[in-house]
């Protein structure tokens, strides 16, 4: 029996490796916040945090969708364009006089439909997600300019109310409705990933698609589902963005997919799939938001530093994942 217990001893220390990246992100976030608080008095105002959420609510929602895709080991480059297209379609239909409720339904259907189609092409024809979603990105961006070459303002009552409603103390600390919607999306996504078969299948496919198939899991259906979910999240993100900007513009959210992917990776989700949490993605988005806020607070730094810092963080986290991956074997 002694040999047996020896054999069954885990070859690893008890600290679960899968939590290391998320913990690293949490530490990073606290350090960044600490730096902010120590440097700028106004930073400690709770509203600073709220503003990070208000400014990045739509990014958070889209990043949650991307988390599903990346967990299966895929990627979705179309999200930025789908966000823009959703905002654009909403603005256009509202200008045409359609009722707000109908516009919402239509706008929320476009993204998932496109995602579903892309998922089908990826699954049935076995084409790399990168290329398929690139086509989706071209398509959605093309649709934007097809609808209108210039920005369309939104004057609809429902939209303006959603945009201006302050929850909390309107003159003190408050958040927008978008933040609540974003939190709701996060909660639903976290529940789906942790407690439903779909969610667990997402992890299994990301871990080892062949095994998942041999274990009898619905690999194709799940794969199509994650691109549909990502499309839905991008659509919700587009609506939130249109609440935020009260317009639809053909060239808005260009390159947003990169920010989204960066947020997911910095949030500890492994780009090869199978490991990561929605909670990590929330942290990743917060890290991006806090960096932006820091750079805004510091007048001397310019906005491009955001990209450089994000690139550096991407590098650090990818390297971290790689190192953990090596130890894995």
């Amino acid at each position: 029996m002694t040999t047996l217990s020896l054999l069954t001893t885990r070859t690893w220390s008890r600290l679960p490796r899968r939590h290391v990246p998320v913990l690293a992100t949490l530490v990073l976030l606290l350090v960044l916040y600490g730096v902010g608080v120590s440097q700028y008095r106004a930073f400690s105002n709770i509203q600073v945090i709220f503003n990070v959420f208000i400014d990045n609510g739509f990014l958070l929602v889209v990043a949650v969708g991307m988390t599903f895709v990346i967990l299966t080991g895929g990627i979705d480059l179309s999200v930025g364009s789908v966000v823009a297209m959703t905002a654009m379609v909403s603005a256009f239909l509202l200008r045409e006089g359609l009722p707000a409720a109908l516009v919402l339904v239509i706008a929320l259907l476009i993204g998932p439909t496109l995602g579903f189609l892309m998922g089908c092409v990826i699954h049935f024809f076995d084409i790399q997600p990168f290329i398929v979603t690139l086509a989706g990105m071209f398509f959605a961006r093309g649709m934007c300019t097809f609808i209108s070459g210039s920005s369309i303002p939104i004057t609809d009552g429902f939209w303006t109310r959603m945009s201006q409603e302050r929850i909390g103390n309107p003159s003190g600390n408050f958040v927008s409705i978008s933040v609540l919607i974003a939190f709701a999306v996060v909660a639903v996504a976290a529940y789906t990933l942790a407690y439903t078969r779909l969610g667990r299948n997402v992890y299994a496919i990301g871990g080892n698609p062949q095994s998942a198939l041999l274990m009898g899991l619905p690999v194709g259906r799940t794969r199509i589902a994650v691109y549909t979910i990502s499309g839905l999240c991008a659509a919700i993100g587009g609506i939130l963005l249109s609440f935020y900007t009260l317009s639809g513009a053909p060239l808005i959210a260009v390159g947003m997919e990169l920010d989204v992917i960066a947020a997911v990776v910095i949030g500890g989700t492994v780009l090869t799939g199978g490991s990561g949490y929605v909670f990590g993605t929330v942290l990743g988005v917060l890290v991006l938001g806090v960096i932006q806020t820091l750079i805004t607070f510091d007048g001397s730094l310019n906005s491009w530093w955001t990209k450089i810092v994000i690139g550096g963080l991407l590098f650090a986290f990818i390297l971290l994942q790689r190192l953990i991956g090596i130890r894995y074997k």
């Binding site: 024809f125 084409i127 290329i131 398929v132 961006r141 093309g142 300019t145 097809f146 053909p250």
Partner: peptide, 27 residues
């Protein structure tokens, strides 16, 4: 609009990839 050429590009990407894809060819 020049941006709309993206729509055409999307069609071309998908068409070319489908022609190249073994899965599609098999079908």
């Amino acid at each position: 609009s020049p941006q709309t050429s993206l729509l055409f590009k999307a069609v071309v990407v998908i068409a070319v990839c489908l022609i190249q894809a073994p899965g599609f060819r098999a079908r």
